[in-house]
Nucleic acid binder design. Structure first.
Length: 608
RNA sequence: GCCCCUGUAGCUCAGCGGAUUAGAGCGGCUGCCUUCUAAGCAGCGGGUCGCAGGUUCGAAUCCUGCCGGGGGCGCCA
């Protein structure tokens, strides 16, 4: 299979690269890339070179009678030109050379340019896409170094659904960014520091190292934490020991650090196990815990102070980024150093921004953190900006809402406890297993278990990713495991059906030599248009840090495929040419679904 | 009190500047398995896009105000 070769001449169907061509070479696959270049040329010809680069506002048409795509640029352009939008549209169309690409170009309504592609052009694009590994996904114009901060569980604390969201969303974004050629640096900002460690360590001492390690390794982190907290609240002597222990920890007492390290190690073992089960790409190498920044904190404080951005207020060193007010309208402080001399999480976060921009060279800082932190992060970013740490990089809070139970309240167990991730995944696989047992008796036991795992875990992850992340979402087992609708099982099933065709075809695979595909049936055409939109789906997902864009795309693709599957016999096609074409469509669909699900961190079993 | 997010069909959600009919899925009703996996497909019914103004040739989409829901607002992280 040829490696991705980036750019190619505009004319796919015939001819070749022509140095005299008025067009810049355009990327392959998505017709919009070609159309954009043609519109640019037409707009420049009609209205002058200062309009070069105008976005033609190409959209898929919502109804078939309006063609395949519509360009909405005439309306917006007419405002700038002070003329009639229909005239602008007509002028663009008069200069628009889409011979070989479109079979119809119409101006409609207030100035929409409706475009209907030639079937042979579509077929040629698809043929070329099939012969290419990336399915039309182009690398980003400029590769960036992107730090993605996600997951961030707390030592000696169970991961809950909030961490699940951060972990799953972050991991999907990381994969998408990497596909686009960015240099992605994962940062698991583990909560491994702070005052709670006094009581945790003292509790550890009480239990004895062996017993504590055992308890933690079983994964009962919350139990450990709660016991410590209970003693702290009930036993003044314990509380005093805990306070002294915090001091010992912060002053670097060796024995204390040793005990602390035990807590961290055991917790990490548990986190790694969860990541493994979830199929998340985080490893120990991505750990960059809060304590990592400890040595930088005094210097961060010093730099802020010396730049006049932070000063003592009520004994605490505070920054007052503009635009933030407290209850009484007074300037809201970002507390860098507490009155007792200790550093809080604001200091750590500031140090992290500086480190990521300066040392890691990131031009984009992505924080996959729950929306309650939005004000805090905004203040950190504002302060970091004032300090000049974000001059060549931008920080972005990828916020997400809460997970709600079916009752619309925060997702909890019946008894009101937070849901443990391990138990959640157990239940997911269990529920999936019973569905698989019912629906797929043809699979043997081992394969069934494998499918159940892929379906169960995939369902949980997909349900989380498929909704707009800024909104709260309702956790509902029946819905996420349903085989209808926008769910992981539906997508997995669509792909399994394609694989089934190839198993029966007796052929190793379709012919993907780059030759054109015949597009005849409307269902083929609809599927073709979806297949050629993969690039855009991936790109908008990355730009908006919105995995649900990719989900929506994949669901549409799978729907188009199942319609095609019902209407267009593949193996029993009328002619060999039709059969080959349809096999290529099947192959492209399966690959798009597999890589799309892969970008979401979801496996696609060959059989279901 | 101030700030942020949010309010689309009975339910769960897309759509977030475009075309006199706002899309899915579930649930309800109708059809479709001697034909590549029916974990599916096709169709019917269901919405004054929270409310009121404004900008525009055009608003679910942008702006303002109000109402409902969630979150945040100095030494926890």
């Amino acid at each position: 299979m040829p490696a991705f070769d980036g750019w190619r001449a505009f004319d796919v169907a015939g001819g070749g690269t022509d140095d005299e061509s008025p067009w810049r070479p355009v990327p392959m696959s998505d017709p919009r890339h070609t159309l954009r270049a043609r519109f640019d040329h037409a707009i420049v010809t009609a209205f002058g070179s200062h309009h070069a680069g105008t976005d033609p506002l190409l959209r898929r048409s919502q109804q078939a009678r309006f063609g395949d795509y519509q360009a909405n640029v005439a309306m917006s352009l007419s405002k700038r030109l002070g003329s009639n939008p229909r005239d602008v549209a007509a002028a663009i169309v008069a200069n628009l050379d889409v011979a070989g690409v479109c079979e119809a170009v119409d101006v409609a309504g207030p100035g929409f340019v409706n475009l209907t592609l030639r079937a042979d052009y579509l077929g040629a694009e698809l043929g070329a896409t099939a012969a290419e590994e990336r399915l039309g996904v182009l690398p980003a114009e400029t590769a960036e170094t992107v730090v993605v901060d996600y997951s961030a569980p707390n030592v000696a604390k169970e991961m809950h659904v909030g961490h699940l969201r951060s972990t799953i969303i972050g991991d999907a974004l990381v994969r998408v960014l990497e596909l686009l050629g960015h240099n992605v640096i994962r940062q698991n900002h583990l909560g491994d520091w702070g005052t709670p460690f006094g009581m945790l360590i003292e509790h550890l001492v009480d239990l004895g190292e062996e017993e504590a390690a055992h308890e933690l390794s079983v994964g009962d982190l919350d139990g450990f934490y709660r016991q410590a907290q209970a003693k702290f609240n009930a036993d003044p002597a314990f509380a005093e020991r805990a306070r002294l222990r915090v001091v010992a920890l912060q002053s670097g007492d060796r024995q204390t650090l040793g005990l602390w390290g035990l807590l961290v190690r055991e917790s990490n073992r548990y986190f790694a196990a969860v990541y493994e089960r979830l199929g998340v790409t985080l490893t120990d190498r991505d750990l960059c815990p809060e304590s990592f920044y400890n040595p930088m904190l005094t210097d961060v404080a010093l730099e802020l102070e010396s730049k006049g951005l932070a000063w003592l207020d009520d004994g605490a060193l505070c920054a007052f980024p503009p635009g933030f007010a407290g209850r009484e309208g007074e300037p809201l402080p970002l507390i860098v150093r507490k009155r007792d001399g200790g550093y809080g999480y604001a200091a750590t976060d500031l140090a992290a921004v500086r480190y990521r921009a300066r040392e890691l060279g990131a031009t984009r800082l992505v924080y996959v953190v729950g929306s309650p932190q939005s004000q805090h992060l905004a203040m950190v970013f504002a302060t970091a900006g004032q300090a000049g740490w974000l001059e060549s990089s931008r920080a972005e809070h990828v916020a997400f809402g809460s997970v709600l139970g079916p009752d619309g309240k925060m997702f909890k167990t019946r008894s009101g406890e937070t849901v443990k991730l391990g138990a959640l995944l157990d239940e997911a696989v269990e529920r999936a297993a019973s569905v698989v047992a019912e629906k797929s008796p043809h699979l043997d036991g081992a394969e069934r278990a494998e499918v159940a795992r892929a379906v169960g875990v995939g369902a949980v992850k997909y349900a989380d990713l498929a909704n707009d992340r800024v909104k709260d979402y309702v956790f509902d087992w029946d819905r996420m495991l349903a085989m209808d609708g926008n769910t992981a099982p539906y997508l997995q099933y669509a792909r399994a059906r394609v694989r089934s065709i190839f198993r029966r075809s007796g052929e190793a695979g379709p012919v993907v030599d780059g030759s054109a595909v015949a597009i005849v049936d409307p269902a083929e055409r609809a599927l073709a248009l979806d297949l050629l939109s993969f690039d855009e789906a991936v790109r908008s997902t990355a730009e908006l840090s919105a995995p649900h864009r990719l989900c929506t795309y994949l669901f549409g693709l799978a729907s188009s495929f199942t319609t095609f599957y019902e209407r267009c016999p593949v193996l029993r096609a009328d002619t060999d040419e039709q059969r080959r074409s349809r096999l290529v469509l099947c192959d492209l669909t399966a690959r798009a679904l597999q890589s799309g699900l892969g970008l979401l961190g979801i496996q696609a079993p060959d059989r279901m």
